[in-house]
Design a binder for these strands. Structure first.
Lengths: 351, 351
DNA sequence: CACAGTCTGTGTATCGTTACACAAATGGGC
DNA sequence: GCCCATTTGTGTAACGATACACAGACTGTG
């Protein structure tokens, strides 16, 4: 560590001795000030200041009390990405809001994608977990369950005994794809990763069931529903997979498929970021939207509104807050209030 | 809490009894598996699984070991804002990266702006603190110092015994303002909040020294330097203050000052977000950039590049990583390697 | 065959607090 | 002036784990 602590941290007992009171009196001074007379309190505070006592040791306190005062967030993706994915960030803002209101810390569990992630979960000193969208086979899920702490899953996969917060992705996907595919002859999907391997690339005849990220899977199914409802064959729909939710990656991937004879005339993207990356590539290729290319996004971010992007509106921040509340035992369980979404039609599609 | 734990969490002693070994053997099985023979290890693991033992209690472990396995981040602003300010988010990504590499959690201390914030710091179970830019008088600073834990301050204010990571804000402000003010007659500043009160509004004859956020103060000073070097009088420079680093707020504030006879012909903003909000307002007012209005930002985000904004480039993510490393005692102290910045000239100014 | 050097398993004390039960001091009502 | 109720201070026993020192069972060496 950077700072060499010249003296070891004083203990409560030392403060007690210095103030000539019992340890319990010191404890009460911090935990229940009203329990102690004003004079004694002053004596204790003074002794504490003199010794440089920073207050009860958080670890010891939480061991004894049985609560840590922090909520854990487990991100299904490497921690590094968490702050780079705007959707995750919005979600975290909601969790953070509730934490702040309760005076709780927000501990982000360091997921790296390695097998030791489960240990990281087991070692996290928290009072409960919020799990951000992950894959069916993510090893952190059993670890969260084993902890015995209250936990809520966002997005999926659904777990026994864990409340679940998500919109009906399949239905929303159907709705947005209906708008995108209305006049389409060569439809395409711009997708989140299918599984933890996150292999990017363009796929033909992709079976949605093969995607182990439930959110990706359900959206693919919804897109298929819409295309088939329009009389098309799913096997004709190509799926371009991005490893991460990044406009930049979408842009470079789109550049590869927007030229050539079989370039799509309609693309449904799984996020506004991906859609906007695509639109940048389209603009560079001299394509007009929606004339040459219909595009839809997902999330209704500010940027989507500015770009006139047809999209699905969902309030990720509110969902984050909801997850946190459920973990804290506030509010009712999942089923009672389904999470809302809305189709927002703009100029990137023509109906 | 949402989940009613049917059984209390099993303890190590119970596992030991079930596996017919000593408690220490169980402890070693988890902490130093090599210390235990393969058979015994199997016995213990099996007993643990049978009882649903989730592994050593993190609180107890950290009390005994003296380390918590988590790094604390203190944001000088209410926790709610943390994930909404793109700059803070980029910084956090850097901190998170280092944490993940070390298998450390990242605990965000719940700052709300109330006096109890200091207690929240004292109660945080972490091994060290990273303090994000705050004001001179922020009560969390003494609390961090009192904790005796290693700590690093980003941006400011500089603290005794705490390494400090920041660019030379004043020099950078001088450089960017020189570009903005080159042909200006009615210069203006679009500023971060001056102090914890975060009072928004337009100020005349503002003394930079009055700003208690060091970053704000230094940048104001740099802007003043540049204007005075160009032969102007600082008292003629108006300062528009935003409460938060938000494009939306900047846009609405700018709308009020871009019309009228004394509208500015050059504005230096303290962030790209603020600058972009201003540019949106300018576009709506029919003003051309840089013709009618020279604009500069700060941070060189993707959006700034896309908008052709002259700005200061600094790598906040790298700075976050650097802070985390310093807290962990990796790398040398602040002075040795000054943090870099660069003026990026684009089309929003004309030289 | 004796002896040093591993490898494994085991008690004990302790990390720094707080819950709980109890005792002493204080105050008020009649 | 007595008694009950409140206020205030105090010991003791956990909370659940790990550091440490030690003991017995092995191994291999000369």
């Amino acid at each position: 560590m950077a700072k060499d602590p010249s003296r070891p941290r004083p203990t409560m007992a030392e403060v007690a001795r210095a103030a000539k009171v019992s340890v319990m009196t010191v404890s009460y001074t911090y935990a229940q000030p009203d329990r102690v007379s004003e004079q004694t309190r002053a004596k204790v505070r003074q002794a504490a200041t003199r010794l440089g006592y920073p207050g009860p040791h958080p670890g010891a306190r939480s061991l004894r009390r049985g609560r840590t005062g922090s909520l854990g967030v487990v991100l299904g993706e490497p921690l590094t990405y968490a702050f780079e994915d705007p959707q995750a960030t919005r979600f975290l803002a909601g969790v953070a809001e509730v934490c702040a209101r309760h005076g709780l810390g927000l501990t982000i569990v360091p997921i790296t994608g390695s097998p030791s992630d489960a240990d990281r979960v087991a070692e996290a000193a928290v009072d409960g977990f919020v799990v951000w969208t992950t894959s069916d086979d993510d090893p952190v899920l059993p670890a969260v369950a084993a902890s015995g702490l209250p936990a809520v899953v966002h997005g999926g996969p659904r777990q026994q005994d864990m409340p679940f917060v998500a919109i009906d992705d399949r239905a929303a996907a159907r709705a947005v794809a209906a708008a995108a595919f209305a006049h389409a002859r060569r439809p395409m999907v711009l997708s989140f990763p299918l599984d933890r391997a996150r292999t990017p690339g363009i796929r033909n005849e992709l079976d949605p069931a093969k995607a182990t990220f439930p959110v990706t899977r359900q959206r693919l199914r919804g897109f298929r529903d819409a295309w088939e409802a329009a009389g098309g064959r799913w096997s004709h729909v190509r799926v371009a997979v991005c490893a991460r939710n990044s406009a930049r990656e979408a842009e470079s991937l789109a550049t590869t498929f927007l030229s050539g004879p079989d370039a799509p005339d309609a693309v449904v993207a799984m996020s506004d970021e991906l859609a906007l990356g695509l639109m940048r590539a389209a603009a560079r290729a001299g394509l007009t939207v929606p004339g040459d290319l219909a595009v839809t996004g997902w999330d209704d971010t500010d940027a989507a509104a500015a770009a006139g992007l047809t999209t699905i509106a969902q309030d990720l921040r509110a969902q984050g807050a909801r997850c946190a509340q459920l973990v804290l035992g506030e509010g009712t369980d999942d089923e009672t209030r389904p999470t809302e979404w809305q189709l927002v039609l703009r100029d990137s599609t023509s109906l």
